[in-house]
Design a protein around this nucleic acid. Structure first.
Length: 439
RNA sequence: CGGGGCGUAGCGCAGCCUGGUAGCGCAUCUGGUUUGGGACCAGAGGGCCGCAAGUUCAAAUCUUGCCGCCCCGACCA
């Protein structure tokens, strides 16, 4: 993509409403624009990041054996009356009436709907287990939206729902999602720590929050230090025994403020105690028959008896993750995207767009990199060098290829790593090679 | 929802107290000089001063109501 044709409105100054760093950078780098309180338009750069995150989440769900579908944003109130939550949910739920005066709602979550789909389609225990998920926009009419996309009212969420014939099966599903989450967040360049959590209004017994440590996090969290850098399970057989992975992590103390037990925390060796701020990026629940019972979701069991299905639900805040990643990865100059989610891998910076030699080398690099499937944002505008450097540091692409007459006089272009600040000079061919080989 | 604050050019702000018909910086456009870390000079365009009503000869400024947004708290992926 050429900057001259892209749509990337950058802000030199920080809008007054943005308080935390991720919100400031998201506005300045042209990732989002606020439409109204807690509701955002995703501009091209932000949209690319959102899609990249979504795709990683999807791949890890699929790998764990979950099956994707898509449910609507608007739901009928009837189902919610059936589960008893229509009156319980409170003002967070946006209620709407259609032209026939029927009650609708903009889904804050999808337990009812998925259970309805399930009960209408599944009759036998032989159809179990299943984990279904979708990635869809949700709306929760938060009393006070804040921190940009981190606590919006409208947000993109991946939510999975597991169906099993018994509690033992449900536990296996829970473990699958637990491990899938560890892998997902690691691929997003985040260090996540699962913490014992409150099941909240969704209800249930087994529940963990996945927390990303960040100074500006909303929640106060406490955990054993070893959890932070614990290696993520590799080559996982999701049909095998996952319990060791879970035990490894749940045997060490980790809890959010609400569940914090200061006595248990005090038993951790002093040098291993970690009290920090964190951002909740995922939440998993096992809630048994809480919804299958009122909605009468039953299957025929092996002995011909009817059994209520055991369920769990598993959420990841996809749009929140954009903010969380920035909170965890930035510096004074701007965002530092992990390669896995970066909107482009490389920023190709032409320092002198009207210099024939510079343009020739840039055009060549752009063409060859693009042809090789490398995503490049090519700044072919005639902005001043300093402006371009600042812009590219702000938008945080992992790599910059800097091309100007001065370097070309020695037959060289410069490569800068945004994260480390490391620079190297090499020929254009070598630079091309560096990004196209092994890809 | 309780408490606090703010709505003036695309962004950041001044002007409001003490009414006289709008200004600064950045951005944008034109011309020139510059050109490897957010250049300089000269000029130009851009505003129902959040909306409505009221007071007044006269309202960005005073009064009332409404709307929007932000911050702190209780609540949450």
């Amino acid at each position: 993509m050429r900057v001259s044709r892209f749509f990337m409105p950058l802000l030199r100054e920080t809008p007054a409403e943005a308080q935390i760093v991720s919100h400031r950078y998201m506005l300045r780098a042209g990732l989002v624009r606020q439409a109204s309180a807690g509701i955002y338009s995703w501009l091209p750069l932000g949209h690319r990041v959102l899609r990249n995150i979504e795709q990683i989440v999807r791949e890890e769900q699929n790998r764990a054996g979950a099956v994707e579908l898509l449910m609507p944003t608007l739901q009928s109130a009837e189902l919610w009356r059936e589960s008893g939550r229509y009156d319980v949910y409170g003002k967070e739920m946006l209620r709407i009436k259609d032209r026939h005066d029927r009650d609708l709602l903009y889904g804050p979550t999808n337990e009812e709907l998925i259970t309805d789909i399930f009960r209408g389609a599944v009759r036998s225990y032989k159809d179990l287990p299943r984990i279904l998920y979708h990635i869809q926009w949700k709306f929760r009419d938060e009393i006070r939206p804040r921190f940009g996309v981190m606590r919006g009212r409208e947000f993109l969420m991946k939510d999975s729902y597991s169906f099993d014939v018994d509690a033992e099966g449900a536990r296996r599903a829970y473990y699958k999602m637990f491990v899938a989450y560890l892998k997902t967040f690691a691929r997003l360049g985040l260090k996540s720590v699962p913490m014992k959590a409150d099941a909240g209004p969704i209800g249930g017994e087994l529940s963990h929050e996945f927390i990303v440590l960040a100074e500006t996090g909303e929640s106060q969290v406490y955990c054993h230090k070893d959890l932070v850098d614990m290696p993520v399970p590799d080559n996982v057989d999701f049909e095998g025994d996952l319990e060791p992975y879970i035990r490894e992590r749940t045997s060490l103390y980790a809890a959010t403020d609400e569940k914090h037990d200061s006595e248990a925390f005090a038993k951790i060796p002093a040098d291993k105690q970690l009290a920090a701020r964190g951002i909740e990026v995922g939440h998993i629940f096992y809630f048994g028959t809480k919804y299958s019972k009122p909605l009468n979701a039953k299957v025929a069991g092996p002995k011909g008896d009817e059994v209520l299905v055991e369920m769990g639900s598993y959420g990841i805040g996809v749009s929140r993750l954009v903010g969380a990643i920035i909170e965890a990865s930035h510096d004074d100059a701007g965002i530092i995207w992990p390669e896995s989610v970066a909107p482009f891998r490389i920023g190709l910076i032409s320092l002198k767009a009207d210099d024939p030699k510079t343009r020739e080398v840039c055009d060549g690099l752009y063409q060859k990199l693009t042809a090789a499937g490398v995503e490049v944002l090519y700044d072919d505008t005639d902005e001043r060098a300093g402006t371009k450097f600042s812009m590219f540091d702000l938008i945080g692409l992992p790599w910059q290829i800097i091309v100007g007459p001065r370097g070309l006089a020695n037959g060289q272009v410069e490569i800068k790593n945004r994260k480390t600040g490391e620079r190297q000079n090499l020929s254009a061919e070598a630079a091309l090679n560096m990004f196209t080989s092994g890809k």
